[in-house]
């Protein structure tokens, strides 16, 4: 701690950014994630080959100059598929985490701040959700909902002739994302609730009450900003987890359906042949691992950087 002498105005975010830049691991994480975002956004223009184009004469090729990560059992370029898979991975991670976060933060904050019956009810629901094996829950959701939704969409298509209802990938995405968000929100809700519970008894919250501020202002300006640090860490770890989760579903065949590439179904495919063609497993697995670790580094760095008590 030091008494600051310089007189330029401080802003929380500018300070945080300055502290973040000092943290080499966090910067490395940020660069990797920025690269992922870029690749996800411009994937189709970056791939050396079409991710669907098969070259049956060039199957299971080892890495070479023409195919830096080799080719798969249908002769498709692995690098192109990884690049295109980044789009899936990124979409899954962001959408699932955002939806889960929205549900978790709203419910957790209300439960923690106001307590009472709502708090108890929320805890029942989260306990129940968390006690059911995640994969099982998703399998059940997919198995029971896929059929009716598909039928409903077909019926809508017959009525409207709108081609959007014929897009089977959309069903996959909605179902996969939806069920993933459904199993992902309880940890956020519990985290936010625990944070809010401890923060709402901090003396500065009592001080805010003594000023006559309303509960809404106290929650938004005194409680939530101070709960942000641990939430950001959880989110950055959660983004990585969501990618791993999607891979697990694809591996089980309930995720994104082929031929759309996802890192998960690439790992799943690679695993079947890994003794003969290890590059088909290693390439997607390594990319997934690097990205997951990058999210964790960035999360830790953000947590330190957003704490204004941190050393300058």
């Amino acid at each position: 701690m030091s008494a600051v002498v310089e007189d330029k105005p401080n802003s929380l975010w500018r300070d945080a950014w300055r502290r973040l830049r000092r943290n080499k691991l966090a910067v490395a994480g940020l660069i990797i994630i920025a690269a992922l975002v870029f690749v996800a956004a411009f994937g189709p223009w970056l791939t050396p080959y079409d991710f669907l184009s098969q070259d049956l004469d060039a199957r299971n090729l080892a890495p070479s100059l023409a195919h830096p990560f080799g080719t798969d059992d249908l002769g498709r370029d692995v690098l192109s598929r990884l690049i295109y898979g980044a789009r899936t991975a990124f979409l899954v991670a962001v959408i699932v985490t955002l939806v889960a976060l929205l549900i978790g933060v709203v419910l957790g904050a209300i439960a923690g701040f106001y307590g009472g019956f709502f708090d108890k009810a929320l805890m029942w629901v989260t306990d129940m959700t968390m006690s059911v094996p995640q994969l099982l829950l998703v399998v059940v959701i997919n198995a029971s909902l896929k059929q009716p939704i598909t039928l409903w969409m077909e019926a809508r298509y017959m009525e409207t002739m709108n081609p959007i209802y014929r897009n089977s990938a959309l069903i996959d995405f909605v179902l996969v994302f939806g069920s993933m968000a459904l199993i992902s929100w309880p940890p956020y809700a519990r985290l936010v609730r625990a944070q809010v519970l401890s923060i709402r008894n901090r003396p500065y919250v009592t001080a805010a009450r003594a000023l006559g501020l309303t509960n809404r202002i106290i929650l938004m300006r005194y409680v939530m900003p101070n709960a942000m640090g641990s939430l950001i860490v959880a989110v950055s770890a959660g983004l990585g987890t969501a990618m791993v989760l999607e891979s697990a579903f694809s591996f089980l065949g309930i995720g994104v359906n082929p031929p759309t590439p996802s890192w998960g179904n690439m790992i799943s495919d690679g695993l079947r042949v890994w003794t003969n063609y290890p590059h088909l497993l290693l390439a997607p697995a390594a990319v997934l691992a690097v990205v997951t670790v990058a999210f964790n580094f960035l999360g830790d760095g953000l947590n330190d950087a957003l704490n204004p008590k941190g050393q300058k």
């Binding site: 003396p203 500065y204 009592t206 001080a207 006559g212 309303t214 101070n226 204004p308 008590k309």
Partner: peptide, 21 residues
């Protein structure tokens, strides 16, 4: 709420009663 303006408090530990952010 309307009475809070008139009736104020200063706490023991000024550090923990100020929002760190």
């Amino acid at each position: 709420r309307p009475f809070r303006r008139d009736l104020q408090i200063v706490f023991q530990d000024p550090y923990s009663t100020l929002n760190p952010r």
